[in-house]
Amino acid sequence: MGAWYFVFLAYGIVWSAILIYWLTLKRRLARAETELAELCASSEPQANAKT
């Protein structure tokens, strides 16, 4: 195995792992923000009804 094989293996693993983590994080954040927006929207009529 040539030296470049090890170099590309290392670079490939590192940047793939970081890309996967970034995509997962973005998806988790988007899901949480949607849930928060839905909760806020559904709690506003309740708050108005109480007042």
Binding site: Y21, L25, K26, R28, L29, A32, E33, L36, L39, S43
Partner: peptide, 18 residues
Amino acid sequence: LLSLRFRLGEVNEEIKAL
């Protein structure tokens, strides 16, 4: 990445509080 992850933590806290 830290700013994204920190924001996720804050949003999760807001959800729990609500």
